[in-house]
Design a protein around this nucleic acid. Structure first.
Length: 544
RNA sequence: AGGGGCGUAGCUCAGUGGUAGAGCAGCGGCCUUUUAAGCCGAAGGUCGUGGGUUCGAUCCCCACCGCCCCUACCA
């Protein structure tokens, strides 16, 4: 093994040998401790020095050395354990010649155990007076800089272990994430739901529109897809009589990577028989308020410059959202009847493009750069939407969805329930009885991000088959390659009226931890693998 | 995929068309209540990689690699 910095690596290997020569095992197997550094700091926060020294209660504590100050015949260090740091004081008189030799051979990053008792230093810091040192494990590579920590974002993602050692903030995010998941489990368990695990390898990728990852099973000699959603399996379970069922697990989508997208991400998906999407909206209002409150202490949560209030959801239909956020530069807002026909909507968009061009022309660039930018981007989006509609023959519902995304989605900062989605983009949702162009579907949007997606589940097998067939006929990378006949068969056995929903755990964690990149809430986000130096040289050789 | 930015010691960062600097970490020495401990000394680098311009490139130009941000695809 060879690592940079080579001299420090070798230096520390030599020290390990010297530690062994002192009679210590290089890699001991255990250490029996009585308290963690975190527990000591908490339990003895209010206990004064004289009281500590009067009782001289023996403690045994293990941790990683994260600071080290040697002063002749005594020294201080901090041991980090369970995320907190306790100081230790090591005196040659007390630990003896060999004990002090061991102390000399320690480096930042090493794990040790200590036996001793608590006292307070002159400055009042709670400290362990060490009677005996135990060597536990050597860090052969140095820790990041002690004051600034690991500032290189790439290193924080690639070497998360270092980030976690050095950054209490990062550590806290993942602890919060665990609490969020626990909270969600409690919420659903308390409502009579059962937690299940359905396949992650699917013969047909369904339940969402996304490009899947493909893999292969050797013995069966079949291609399989990593699941893009658990939806169709969970709904089979509602047919099977699990009336309230949920799963928390990973989905995989072979799509782009961004601050809001990682190729694998965690979803909570749940189904509740005999309920509809209105019931779910109410359930969501309770759920989000409760989770936000128990995680952050309040339903009002700081997210960047905003304060998101999960105690108060706005409800808007998709069409209302488009009308509400339609910018004046885009001309008159569309009328309700214009959402009915593709031709009317296209005409509206063409007019808007002209109005936007006009607006762009009228504004002097230096007057309001942000507005100029908005007008330019919106015009480009509208032109793209028109191309989709006119050249690719996309259905009107798709056009409406695209318009929503172009004009409204990023404006929805406060938690919003956006509902009544076009049937054309909702192949698994039940239609509204009074308007088959719309479905009983909603999304929860906060900070401009889609957090959850739920609907009254389509349980009419004939209609489901028509929708699947339409999807397949339309084609594209994101459409299923074949009909999921077994799913239709399951529906034919009778699925109760059911409402279901998926909640993005990563994004929810972002909101509740004020994290602005999904990579900050996923321990090991997908990055391009590090090239070994020789690979890199070879790659360049080939090109030359 | 397109646009912008970044890449210098293990880490955090300065810097210059003329052979590269600080702090922390590491090494040697002094120091028995310090705490970003201190003081003295020495060491540490193919300035992301490869080309080009130049008498001379870490710096200027081009390509490539990696990361970040925005846009596009998507949740």
């Amino acid at each position: 093994m060879e690592f940079e910095p080579r001299d420090q690596f070798e230096q520390r290997q030599r020290k390990l040998e010297q530690i062994q020569a002192l009679g210590h095992e290089a890699f001991p197997r255990e250490f029996r401790w009585t308290e963690s550094p975190a527990e000591l700091l908490k339990d003895y926060a209010a206990v004064q020095g004289p009281e500590l020294e009067a009782s001289r209660k023996e403690v045994r504590v293990a941790g990683r050395i994260v600071s080290y100050r040697l002063m002749g015949k005594a020294g201080f260090a901090h041991l980090q354990g369970a995320g907190k740091r306790i100081q230790i004081y090591v005196k040659k008189d007390v630990v003896g010649e060999k004990g002090f030799q061991l102390f000399h051979l320690l480096d930042l990053g090493d794990h040790i155990g200590v036996r001793g008792h608590l006292f307070r230093t002159r400055t009042g810091e709670l400290t362990i007076w060490v009677d005996e040192l135990f060597f536990l494990s050597k860090a052969l590579l140095p820790l990041p800089e002690k004051w600034h920590g690991l500032a290189d974002i790439e290193l924080r993602y690639r070497q998360r272990y270092l980030d976690l050692i050095v950054s209490e903030k990062s550590r806290a995010v993942y602890q919060t994430r665990a609490r969020i998941v626990r909270e969600l489990r409690q919420f659903f368990d308390g409502r009579g739901y059962i937690e299940v695990e359905t396949p992650m390898m699917h013969p047909i990728a369904g339940g969402a529109t996304a490009r899947p990852f493909v893999t292969h099973h050797n013995t069966l000699d079949i291609d399989l897809y990593l699941r893009i959603a658990p939806e169709l399996y969970l709904k089979r379970l509602t047919v099977g009589g699990f009336d309230r069922v949920y799963e928390i697990n990973r989905n995989f989508r072979n799509e782009g990577i961004s601050t809001q997208h990682n190729p694998e991400f965690t979803m909570l998906e749940f189904y509740e028989a005999y309920s509809n999407y209105r019931d779910l909206m109410e359930l969501n209002e309770q759920l989000f308020a409760q989770v936000a409150k128990s995680i952050t202490g309040s339903t009002k949560v700081k997210f960047g410059e905003h304060e998101l209030d999960f105690g108060k959801f706005t409800r808007l239909t998709m069409r209302e959202a488009i009308v509400k956020y339609w910018p004046e530069e885009a001309g008159p807002t569309p009328h309700l009847d214009e959402f009915e026909s593709a031709a009317a909507l296209r005409a509206r968009l063409h007019e808007s493009v002209d109005d936007l061009a006009q607006a762009h022309h009228e504004h002097e660039p230096w007057q309001n750069q942000a507005k100029q930018q908005m007008v330019r981007v919106l015009k480009a989006s509208f032109l793209a939407i028109l191309r989709g509609s006119e050249e690719k023959g996309e259905p009107v519902g798709k056009t409406i969805g695209d318009i929503f995304e172009a004009v409204a989605e990023d404006k929805l900062i406060q938690p919003t329930i956006l509902y009544d989605f076009p049937t054309d983009i909702s192949p698994l949702s039940k239609q509204k009885p009074e308007d088959p162009a719309l479905t009983e579907r909603f999304e929860i949007i906060a900070a401009g991000m889609e957090i959850a997606n739920g609907f009254s589940e389509l349980n009419d097998p004939a209609e489901q088959e028509r929708r699947f067939a339409a999807q397949i006929a339309r084609g594209g990378d994101e459409a299923p390659k074949q009909l999921d006949v077994d799913y239709l068969r399951a529906l034919c056995h009778g699925m109760p009226p059911t409402a279901g929903e998926g909640i993005g755990i990563d994004r929810l964690t972002m909101l509740l931890t004020d994290s602005h990149s999904i990579r900050d809430v996923i321990l090991f986000p997908l990055l391009r693998p590090e090239a070994k130096p020789e690979d890199q040289a070879a790659a360049e050789g080939e090109k030359a």
